[in-house]
Computed example of a mutant assay.
Amino acid sequence: MSVISRPPIIIAPQAPVPVRMPRRKSELQRTWPLYLSVAPFFLLFSVFGLFPLAFSLYLSFQKWDGIGQMTFVGWNQFAYLLTDSYFWQAIVNTLEIWLLATVPMICISVVLAFLLASPSNKLKSFYHVAFFLPHITSIVAIALVFGSLFSNQFGLINALLTALGLQRFAWLSQPWGMKIAIASMILWRTLGYHALIFMAGIQSIPATLYEAAQIDGANARQIFFRITLPLLRPVMLFTVITSTISGMQVFTEPQVLLGNDGGPGREGMTIVLYLYQQAFGSYHFGYGAAIGWGLFVLIALFSLFNWLLIQRPGARA
């Protein structure tokens, strides 16, 4: 019996079935919903923020009354700005009002914040609302109220002076009287806001530091000056810079209280009020834009000065 040999059966290997991998989305496809969600802010900022900023820079090199053709004058308006006595008077007035309002505001708000953050204070919520309420009150309403307080003839402060046997004082006619009236409005309006900011800074200080100080026998005054104030330096820097920026832009208080001319002798004329008078009172829109950019330089310089003064080497928290 013969055995018939058969050739081996060779099975061809099957081709691998291609596995479809999910297509990876491109970077733009993954991020466009995020960009779309923030697009309204940038659109509004471009229309109401970026465009006016760029246009004011362009306008500062032009002479324009708001109706006729613009005339290119180059740097002439900035050169005139440096020699304008009214502009320098407005700078001095603004700085004096800022000092009269900011220095007491910082001192009082730190003390108020220390008292508000005290564990023995049982009415914290009430004081929070009471101190913050003036900050959200209309500035025009505040100016009208303070106008009745500091009125030369029928003001409540002069009535109090008369009741005490003292002479009346022309608050809205004397140079320092006008500045004190404006600074008092700013102080009353911003005191509670900055007190809450300082209180938040105090609450961020570790309680173990206070407990250790109390165990060592430190009293409240020593805790305040040795622990609280040094550790509030970053908050102090923020408060001084923001108060400087807002103080350089004071407008509504002197405008409502004293008018567009800044009162007798222009002693209540601030930088922004002078800008408003030149641009919308005298229709010198180009020069008003130059004043605005001069104000920007002043704010930047004073912010840098405050930062260097408070944030000294080795004083970082």
Score class of each variant (00 low, 15 high):
R168M: 10
L172K: 03
R30N: 12
A113P: 08
L123T: 09
L44K: 03
S60A: 15
Y276S: 11
L50D: 00
F61H: 02
L229A: 02
D65W: 09
F51T: 12
P254A: 02
S5I: 13
Y274A: 10
G147A: 02
L53S: 14
A300L: 15
L144R: 12
Q277S: 14
L100N: 05
Q311R: 10
L257I: 03
T83L: 08
P104V: 02
W64H: 06
T190S: 11
E267D: 14
A141R: 04
A279K: 05
L164W: 13
T228D: 07
L144Q: 12
G66W: 07
L309I: 01
K63A: 13
F48P: 11
I91P: 01
L123K: 09
E211T: 11
S85Q: 15
V47L: 15
A101V: 02
L156K: 05
L258P: 02
R221M: 13
G155A: 04
A39W: 14
L44H: 09
M185P: 10
L258S: 03
C107P: 00
A101W: 12
M178Q: 15
G155I: 04
L229R: 00
S56T: 14
I106S: 08
G281V: 08
Y274M: 07
L115S: 12
P230R: 03
A200F: 00
T244F: 00
L229P: 00
W98V: 12
P313V: 01
D261G: 14
A290Q: 04
G74Q: 07
L309C: 07
Q249P: 01
R168Q: 15
F285W: 15
G155L: 04
W98C: 11
G263C: 11
L237F: 11
V145G: 11
Q69S: 13
R266D: 04
T102A: 13
Y127G: 05
S138L: 02
I106C: 06
K25W: 11
M236Y: 00
I10Y: 09
L273I: 07
W64K: 06
T228L: 09
A290L: 04
G263V: 09
I271C: 09
A130I: 08
F48S: 11
F41Y: 14
P52L: 03
G217C: 10
D261Q: 14
L115K: 06
V129W: 08
T31F: 09
L43S: 13
T102W: 09
F224T: 04
I91Y: 08
L28D: 00
V140S: 10
Y283T: 08
M236W: 01
A213M: 12
L116A: 03
E253Y: 01
A289P: 12
P254C: 02
Y35N: 09
Q77N: 06
F169D: 07
H135Q: 05
A141K: 03
M178F: 07
G265H: 02
Q153S: 15
D84E: 05
G66K: 08
M178I: 15
I227C: 11
L44G: 13
L172D: 05
T31P: 00
L160W: 15
Q14T: 13
T31E: 07
I186C: 00
I299C: 06
A12T: 13
F154K: 10
V73R: 04
I223K: 14
Y210L: 09
A130Y: 04
I136P: 00
L237C: 13
L232I: 03
S282I: 13
Y287E: 09
L257D: 01
L99C: 11
V111Q: 10
A181D: 04
L295Q: 13
P18N: 06
I9N: 01
P264E: 04
